[in-house]
Amino acid sequence: MNLSRTARAMLWAALAGGLAVVYVPLLIVLLNSFNADRTFGWPPPGFTLRWWEAAWNSTGVREALWTSIQAALGATAIALVLGTMVAFALQRHSFFGRDAVSLLIILPIALPGIVTGIALNNAFRAVLEPFGLGLGMFTVIVGHATFCVVTVYNNVLARLRRTGSSLEEASADLGADVFTTFRLVTFPMIRSALLAGGLLAFALSFDEIIVTTFTAGAGVKTLPLWIFENLFRPNQAPVVNVVAAALIVLSVVPIYLAQRLSGGEAGPR
C-alpha cells in the first residue's frame, strides 16, 4: 500500500496515543489507592497502605465479592449449556427462522441493559410473587445468563465453522454413536472455545450492574452494586478506590487464561 512516511507515523502515533488514553486512567486509580490524601488530591502528598488494609478488612467488600462470584458461576454454567446448544443448532442445521434465532440471541446485549432489566424485573415479580417468592440470587443468575449466552454461542459457533463436521462423520462411519462421537471428537474440538466463551461470560456477569440492579433482591449485593452504593460516600472513597485498583490488577488473570486457552484468539466474541 502506498502510504507516505507521514501517514505511517501518524497511524503509529494514533495507536500509541489511543493506548495511552486507555491506560492512563487505570494507572491513576492504581496510584490513588496508595494516595495518602483522603480526597485524592493531585499530586499525592504521600503514599500509604492504609486503604488496602481497610478494604481487606471490610466485611461488605468480602461479602459482595463472594456474591458476585456465585452469581457469575451460576450464569456462566447456564450460558455454557444454552450457548453450546444454540451454536450446534444453527451451525449444523439449516431451518426456517434461523436468522431470527441468531438475532434473538444477540438481542439481550443489543437492547439497552435497562430494558432487559425492567422487563425481567416485571416478569419475575409477576411470576414469583404468587408463590410468595421474592427477587434474590436466583433471579440475578437468570438475568445474567440471559445476556451471557451470546458470548459462549459466538465462540462455539466460530469454532464449529472452522472445524467443519468431517471428523464427526469419520467417527460415525467408524461406528461411534452420537454420544461417543460427542465425547471423544466434538467436545475436545470445542473445549477451548467453551473455556474462552465461559471466561467471557463470567467476566460479563461479574461486571454487570444495570440488569443486576433490577433483578437483585434486597439481600443480594454484588460487587458492582456495592461499589456503586459507596461511590458517593466521601469517607468510603479510598476503600472504593482500592477495590477498583484490585479489580484492575485481577483482570490480568482472565486475560492470561484466555490467551493460554485459546492460543491467542480470545476476543470478546
Binding site: 493506548l19 486507555v22 491506560y23 486512567p25 487505570l26 491513576i28 486509580v29 467476566a203 461479574f206 461486571d207 450492574i209 460487587l223 458492582p224 461499589i227 456503586f228 461511590l231 472504593v240 478506590n241 477498583a244 479489580l247 484492575i248 483482570s251 490480568v252 482472565p254 486475560i255 480470545a266 476476543g267 470478546p268
Partner: peptide, 15 residues
C-alpha cells in the same frame, strides 16, 4: 486493547 475490557465498567467510569 482487550485488557481494559476485563477491568470493571464501574471502575473505569469511576477513574
Amino acid at each position: 486493547v482487550l485488557t481494559p475490557l476485563w477491568a470493571s465498567y464501574l471502575v473505569k467510569a469511576y477513574a
